[in-house]
Amino acid sequence: MAKKKSSPKRSSSNKMRVGIDLGTSRSAISASNGAREWVASYVGWPKDFISEKVLGKPVLFGKEALDNRLSVELVRPLEHGVIKEGISRDEEAVQELVGHLLELVGALESQEIYAVVGVPAESLRANKLAIKRAVQDYVDSLMVVSEPFAAAYGRGLLNNAIVIDIGAGTTDFCIMHGAMPTDEDQRTIVTAGDYIDQQLYHMLKDKYPESDFNINMVRNFKEAHSYVGTVKGKIEVEIPVAGRIMLHDITEEMGRACESVLPAIIENTMELIAKFDPEYQEIVRENIVLAGGGSQIRGLAKYIENVLSEDGPTKVSVVDDPVYASADGALALAQDMPEEYWEDLLKE
């Protein structure tokens, strides 16, 4: 167990149940002691002993790791929505990340930790064992589920609903029909937040070849100004040109980049609606929920709703708390899971 910085809250029992959302961009944890924390999914190890001395830590996380990327070996372990199986550095990064999240919520070494971990559906399907290997050192009993399913469970959307989790590396679709979703009920596409970043980066490079910016800056622009449909006024951002900060109009490019993910999302949603019994498709149409960081794109829910409404009344909503939706759902699963199930999965 990683060393604990502090123990803000202690569980009344000797067991702590946690829900963890291991995302490509952000990882979040919700614990049974009421604590909730999140961190950007970056792990950085100082490149050498000088870096370690300067940074004062053996490992850095989140924004701190990103800000010191020149001094650390920076790993984004779920970059493409999966842990790259067999590559120990990525598994190690996930291990560190989980240890860090448990520290943040004040898990004690003496406590038994029962964890439900939500991962991108792609990751779940591809390498469950890699995830287990990466996480099990920090927990006593572990279950892994897909992020969109965890988000659906947390909201009680267990029947006749579609959850679309738009993350950084992947957009995950999960249909809920009153049973445990199978692989057939879940889909993953890679047109997600990172894809928008790449599109926007290239569009801005074309428009402003002399301007000096990188993909991280573009990601920040997106997080501050993303939209689909129409937007009032101009979107202007500060970018240096030959050392001088200049205002750049990125309104049109922002819209085009964000809209580039829409065809795939619309098409997959329509196909998934068609998978339901025809009698229930009308209900499903009014039960489409967006989760993940991408759900925060302004106008996205309305835009998808308008397009799908051409075929019938449709309601697309956004989860209330996209940062913690999957972690809260995973915690709900952890708390609802019968004790005997946890015991069967205890480490030997």
Partner: peptide, 23 residues
């Protein structure tokens, strides 16, 4: 230092894959 072989990136459902549509 190992690279990332594309085959290790896993297999997800396709964008327009052959989902078994029951309807």
């Amino acid at each position: 230092t190992s690279g990332v072989a594309p085959s290790q990136i896993s297999g997800g459902a396709p964008l327009t894959g052959t989902a078994q549509v029951s309807t």
